[in-house]
């Protein structure tokens, strides 16, 4: 049998993974709250001299974790999110006008990322019809229901977090840490995946892969995962 030389997307370090990120770029960050965020990439970006970033992420982290780290260093010019304000610094910057914020319905955010990675420039959705979200957007009626036109989103870099990955960039997520990661992986010009377990191509069960490696340009194993829980809730026995 012929042996193949396989594509290898592994990078040696988080610094190599984020190389090329510059001021004024548009970045996507997977995750829901603090669940499934690219902790290592965010930490590394917060140490770089990069600013005026537009960040697309469902949420904006907390004061000292996740995207809150970039906010604290005033690296973010604009946030595009569905739900924010779990941190004081965010609120302060937003109310003082230092930070521009665009709030969009969560399903619209997900679909705009999916569309951006899928060659669909725009789509109609019912979410936001008749609300402030509809302002300046085209409205069309289909089957007697009203819909608004929403445009695809793309990014210079997408930072996603998966549970397992292989050297080809194939990814498997765990639990609800999947959320926006597969969609943002598709929408990045350069998609960086950080994983807890990195294995040689061929070791993952091909039936179980969530994100095909074609959407990923760089992959590395994250050093440490704090995996902070935002709202620890238990059943008292």
């Amino acid at each position: 049998m012929k042996s193949f030389n396989m594509i290898n997307k592994t990078v040696a370090s988080v610094d190599e993974a984020i190389s090329g990120v510059k001021s004024n770029m548009v970045l996507m960050f997977g995750g829901f709250g603090l669940c499934g965020i690219a902790e290592n990439c965010i930490n590394a970006l917060s140490k770089k001299n990069i600013e005026s970033l537009t960040c697309i992420s469902n949420n904006a982290g907390v004061d000292d974790f996740g995207l809150g780290l970039l906010l604290k260093k005033r690296q973010i010019k604009k946030m595009i999110s569905s739900y924010v304000g779990e941190n004081d610094e965010f609120e302060r910057q937003m109310l003082s006008g230092e930070l521009e914020v665009e709030l969009i319905p969560q399903g619209t955010l997900a679909e705009r990322c999916r569309a951006g990675g899928s060659g669909i420039p725009a789509f109609f959705t019912p979410a936001g019809y008749g609300t402030e979200v509809q302002t300046d957007k085209e409205v069309r009626v289909f089957n007697k229901k009203k819909y608004i036109l929403e445009h695809a989103l793309n990014a210079d870099f997408s930072f996603v977090k998966a549970w397992k990955g292989d050297t080809l960039g194939n990814l498997i997520y765990k639990g609800t840490a999947r959320n926006f990661n597969p969609l943002m992986a598709m929408a990045g010009k350069t998609t960086v995946a950080e994983v807890e377990y990195l294995v040689p191509a061929g070791e993952l069960d091909l039936n179980q892969i969530h994100t095909p490696g074609i959407f990923v340009q760089r992959i590395f194993r994250g050093g440490v995962y704090e995996k902070r829980i935002e709202n620890r809730t238990i059943t008292k026995s």
């Binding site: 709250g33 603090l34 669940c35 639990g175 609800t176 969609l183 995996k227 829980i229 709202n231």
Partner: peptide, 26 residues
């Protein structure tokens, strides 16, 4: 930490539960 609800509370999954991305969810 990898299993939360939309309120970011820790949860559990029941037998037969299924996980999916945000686009499928919506």
């Amino acid at each position: 930490a990898d299993l939360i609800n939309a309120g970011k509370q820790t949860i559990t999954s029941l037998p037969g539960a299924v996980l999916f991305d945000s686009a499928v969810s919506f």
